[in-house]
Structures are given as structure tokens and as C-alpha cells.
Design a protein around this nucleic acid. Structure first.
Lengths: 123, 123
DNA sequence: CAGCATCCTAATGGATACTG
DNA sequence: CAGTATCCATTAGGATGCTG
């Protein structure tokens, strides 16, 4: 495997990390991907209920971003009342293992982090 | 069969993912960890130059958060002019492989994502 | 049901000036 | 050098009301 530059940090345009973080660093995108990774397809309302605290607006804009990035597929059924289903694309699925690693790490270290934070008096 | 909860998404207090994302979902923390992962220890100014576009203020507050979370160690040397060195803690190092996976994924998929985004007319 | 449009507030983060 | 302190612009995101 080749060891080239990990990131070109000085140039945000060409830095994949910056670019990707700018997308998934928001409050909801990662969560939506994880929800869909757990069970799909899901309807708009089902995702909404799964996350619970997300506002309708943010769910809408987040899903649109994910769709624009080719991570989520949106299917509209010509029914009344309307039904819209969301599922992961192959690209979206390929991100899941990485996110799962993050989840695992979070589960493993959250308590310690919480303790450190409390001890430092920062929050 | 009952569905196993990966994350308790409805409860942000008890959800490690939410909790961790709230910390690293910011614009700079992940970048700082990656910089230190590449080479440490680093002085304040060195990190500043490595990232380039970060403001002094944001570097300061981000480092303080990472320190409070026990991911980064801060060492002050009693010299004139002052020297402060930062390095990763064991906990911080344990996050690196996960972040590296994210970097790898980003490198691999960024061009496609960029293309999808452009095609969708969103940005 | 699945949204869009609008308004509004809170948080993020950049610029600048100053200090031990 | 390694920060603080302050001010200000931008953005994220919530609340509410309306529509096909």
C-alpha cells in the first residue's frame, strides 16, 4: 500500500477529509445513515420517529444532501396518501462499516470521555 | 426476534454516537487529531501552520476541548519565549485508526461524491 | 403523508487588537 | 510564542403554518 499524503490540510478544496467532514460533520447526516443501515427502506416518517429529536426541516435538508451526494436513494410512490421511501445506495453502504467503527469507539470510550470532561470542568 | 438497538437515537444524552459526533462534528477537531497523528509532539504554531486556514481562536478552543476530553496532552515548558507542545494521549491514539478509515473512505469516494453533487446541482 | 416557505434564535467561527 | 478578549458575520437549526 502506498503512503502518500494523508491530507492536504492547507488546501481545503482538495482535501477529501475536509470535504467529507463538511458534509457529515453536521448534526444529523451520520445518524440518518446509521438508521438506514439498521433497516431499510424507511419512509420519511419512520426516519423521523427513529431519530425523534430531529426537526422535520432538518430531516428534509439532510436527506436532500445525502441524496445529492449519492449516498441515499429516494423513491416516490404514486399513491394517496403519498409514500416516499429512502434507502442506502452502494456508496452509502460502503460508508457503514466506517461509521460502525466510530460507533464502536464511541461506545467504548464515551464514559471515560465524559469523566475527563467533568473533571476538567468543561462542557 | 427483537430488534437490537445499535444506538439510542431518541435519547441524545445516552447516545454515544450523538455525544461523540457533537464533539468531533465541528470543523477542526478531527483535523487536529490527524495532524498530531501524523507527527507529534507539535507546538501550537506548528499545528497552526499545518492546518493553515484555521484561525488562532478556533485552534485554541478546539485544543482545549480535545484536552478536556482526554484526547490530547498539553505540556508547557518554562522558557522564554514560551513553548507549548501538544501530543495525543493513549485515548486519542486509539481514535486514529478509526479516523484513518474515514480518511481512506473519503479519498476513495470524494471524486464520485463531487460528481454526484455537481450533477444534482446542490452545493 | 411528506414535504416547502418563512421567521427567528443560538451557535459557530473569522478578524482584529492586545498581553505575559 | 502562545495565547486572551472583543466584536461581528455567517450559518445551523428550531417553531410554526401551509400544501398537493
Amino acid at each position: 500500500m502506498r503512503q502518500e499524503k494523508i491530507v492536504d490540510l492547507a488546501n481545503s478544496e482538495n482535501c477529501p477529509v475536509r470535504n467529507v467532514l463538511d458534509r457529515f460533520g453536521d448534526k444529523w447526516s451520520t445518524l440518518i445513515l446509521l438508521v438506514l443501515g439498521r433497516k431499510e427502506p424507511l419512509r420519511f416518517g419512520a426516519i423521523h420517529r427513529s431519530i425523534g429529536t430531529i426537526s422535520q426541516k432538518m430531516l428534509t435538508v439532510s436527506l436532500k444532501k445525502l441524496e445529492a451526494d449519492g449516498l441515499v436513494d429516494r423513491t416516490v410512490f404514486a399513491e394517496v396518501p403519498p409514500r416516499v421511501e429512502y434507502c442506502l445506495t452502494e456508496r452509502g453502504k460502503s460508508l457503514l462499516p466506517v461509521l460502525q467503527q466510530l460507533v464502536d469507539w464511541a461506545n467504548e470510550h464515551m464514559e471515560d470521555i465524559r469523566a475527563s470532561r467533568a473533571a476538567s470542568g468543561v462542557d
